[in-house]
């Protein structure tokens, strides 16, 4: 997986002599964004839940589809638009494009900082539950034969903030980056559907609906909406409280989630990887541990 990186990030984002590459990539991404926004937010009602599709979902799907190994194979013209140079440039562009979203996250949390501080011990402690990803999924990933990909795939629920952390620490083209993109893409494509069904059925576990409501705030607005909406519909006597608890928890994960990943999740997953990989790991894959830069 650790293929040679001939150009550094600094060289990649230098447009000198590479203007056509920049133009092809940015205009393509602009086109994808415009098409995605024209399609707009779609709600598909099914028997169980309303499936909500957001423009970002179409954007990632179109982005993958137009690459050389997918539609670029049968459609030669696409390979003239998007080929290796554009794909390599797209990595550092993700990191830059994430920054405006980071600012927006801050502006969503700041005004609610007092409520966040007052939110109480249950809200704070259940944030530790997000580490359940590591305890449940890391051993499973190692048993399945994943190596360093497992670190990225299981460090958290792998939404945009974690994508930012892993991208900067290991590089989005690294084994860890591949792992997180896997969980991230599956989450982006199937997350809302999965969580709306999981939330509805989880009532049967006997866990209190308010506890399940807190669990619905995972740091993704769309997933939180899908999960808490389904939960509120399932347990209507707690309906309003469920939505309030989920939104508060989601806000908290917005604040703590990133620090949880940087300060607890990443050290923990690397620690457990070192212990568990020799026991559970199978041969093949990427074994070497790369230090962050």
């Amino acid at each position: 997986m650790s293929e040679e990186r001939t150009m550094s990030e600094e060289q990649l984002i230098d447009p000198k002599g590479r203007i056509p590459v920049f133009l092809r990539l940015t205009l393509t991404v602009l086109g994808i964004s415009m098409i995605s926004e024209v399609i707009g937010i779609q709600r598909i009602p099914t028997g169980i839940a309303t499936i909500v599709l957001l423009p970002m979902l179409y954007a990632v799907v179109i982005g993958i589809l137009i690459t050389p190994d997918v539609l670029g194979k049968p459609i030669k013209a696409l390979r003239k638009l998007i080929s290796d140079d554009e794909i390599k440039l797209a990595g550092p562009m993700v990191m830059l494009a994430l920054l405006p979203l980071g600012v927006k996250y801050g502006t969503l949390v700041g005004p609610n900082i007092v409520r966040v501080v007052q939110a109480g011990p249950a809200f704070l402690l259940q944030e530790l539950g997000n580490l359940g990803t590591i305890f449940l999924a890391l051993p499973l990933a190692l048993l399945l034969g994943l190596k360093r990909e497992a670190v990225g795939a299981t460090v958290s629920i792998c939404r945009e903030p974690t994508l930012g952390v892993i991208g900067e620490r290991y590089g989005i083209s690294s084994a860890e980056g591949t792992g997180i993109l896997g969980t991230y893409l599956i989450g982006t494509v199937f997350g809302t559907v999965f969580f709306s069904i999981l939330a509805t059925t989880s009532v049967a576990t006997g866990l209190h609906p308010l506890a399940l409501a807190m669990a619905s705030g995972m740091g993704s607005g769309s997933m939180m909406t899908a999960a808490s909406g389904a939960l509120a519909a399932t347990v209507p006597e707690f309906g309003d409280q469920i939505l309030a608890f989920a939104a508060t928890s989601n806000m908290l994960t917005g604040v703590t989630g990133l620090y949880m990943v940087v300060l607890v999740g990443l050290p923990l997953v690397n620690f457990l990887y070192r212990i568990l990989e020799p026991v559970l790991g199978r041969s093949g894959g990427t074994r070497e541990v790369k230090d962050g830069n």
């Binding site: 991404v29 954007a59 990632v60 993958i64 690459t67 794909i87 797209a90 979203l101």
Partner: peptide, 18 residues
């Protein structure tokens, strides 16, 4: 907020091309 997400994911989609 949502408006910032489409370009990120378009870049992300292309970046996994290799």
């Amino acid at each position: 907020f949502l408006g910032t997400t489409a370009p990120i994911l378009a870049f992300a989609g292309i970046s996994v091309g290799d």
